[in-house]
Design a protein around this nucleic acid. Sequence first.
DNA 1: CGTTTACTTGAGTAAACTCAACAATTGTGG
DNA 2: CCACAATTGTTGAGTTTACTCAAGTAAACG
Lengths: 237, 237
Amino acid sequence: MTNPLLAKLEAVAALSADDRNTIETICNGARTIGHHKDIVREGEKPEHIHIMLDGWAARYKTLPDGSRQITAFLLPGDICDMGAAVLKHTDHSVVALTQVTIASITRAALIEATRERSSLAQAFWWASLVDEAVLRTWIVNLGRRDAYARIAHLLCELHARIKRVGLVQDGEFSLPLTQEQLADALGLTSVHVNRTLQRLRTEGLVELRNRTLTILDAERLGEAATFDPGYLHASAA
Amino acid sequence: MTNPLLAKLEAVAALSADDRNTIETICNGARTIGHHKDIVREGEKPEHIHIMLDGWAARYKTLPDGSRQITAFLLPGDICDMGAAVLKHTDHSVVALTQVTIASITRAALIEATRERSSLAQAFWWASLVDEAVLRTWIVNLGRRDAYARIAHLLCELHARIKRVGLVQDGEFSLPLTQEQLADALGLTSVHVNRTLQRLRTEGLVELRNRTLTILDAERLGEAATFDPGYLHASAA
DNA sequence: CGTTTACTTGAGTAAACTCAACAATTGTGG
DNA sequence: CCACAATTGTTGAGTTTACTCAAGTAAACG
């Protein structure tokens, strides 16, 4: 199996054989994390960063009143806690939403590798810029779309991202999220997500059963969401 | 005057004299942009990136229905369109909210400089990670805070950031934003911003007159916002 | 000094929330 | 493999927050 981190980096920057070797070398083998376990905890300063190899995870923050906001869903190839590599402390937690396997790189090795090879530093930098673009679309989603378009948009994004990782078959893919988790990502309540999801179903746009999402009418779903996939394809110049 | 971009980069990474020289060399002199003019337009692929030297700008996206979401306020030292440097096309526009002066770096020069000097690539990368942290707090703000706490939080953030740039005197600073622009950043309507701002005033937390914001009770404002400044200080390890 | 832009206020409406109960599904120990 | 527990999903009724529309006031600008 090729390293999904390599795939992610090569999507934004050209890597040499030496670059690839370096990544393979510093990237340590798979560890398994159980469902619901935290991979990263807010405030910590871990000695290594984690890369998703398999499964789903969510990045989130908890407010003093106990409410939660998910700021990203993490799929294979995604980096759980890049901030931890270079910033003072992690500003968020990451929880495994399914059983997850992760690889890790020590902080020191990552900093060393990117100091030695500017091509790698550029690759991580550019991957970061793509992540920023995704965060910006989330801000637009939360700020300016109603619940219906908001959910539709998130489903479109997840569909596109999962497709890229090769896990979509006939417009159908595993979506192991509870309605409460969707609500925490969308800035809604689970009750409202439930009702709005029903509307998307009765209108024939999607089907969601047994943790599996089927997109029945991709075009109308995209329209409902005013989804523009450009920000995801974002590959390097 | 020292280059504000250097200040920004040095806040997250140590630069050598050569690094600083390189930045100074590729960074081209000041241009002035008038109030309300676009600095970057969505979909374009500009040949250089722009760095704020003076004034206020906003990064925003427009939806098909004409509504607008501001995803960042840009202050001196901030980079207007880093994504444009390396990604296929800009996914957002940037507009000058006051008269603005900007410097620019050509795409080619930036890519070249960061390829030659990994320390610079790292610095830009790390600056990007700080930007990401700010975007995440905006997501939390939009998703999980009501209008009152939301506005309070934005005011706290702007206060902290402007202080860092040295433009705060006695808890007072210039805030050249209309209520409509605040609304577009906060995912609210200008009418609701107006009423909520009045509440913040009558409760004695802030004063906002003549485009000047005075923080009357920083502690209570921070509490109302559940503001935790950690994500901004975020300096390198 | 007139005109545009920004701010303010009121009244009615709609989207999303809360609380509470219940059904269905999933997971677990015996 | 069943029985029970826990989690997740569904529904109803009432409430609240924020929105819409519309008009009027104040401030900024040429």
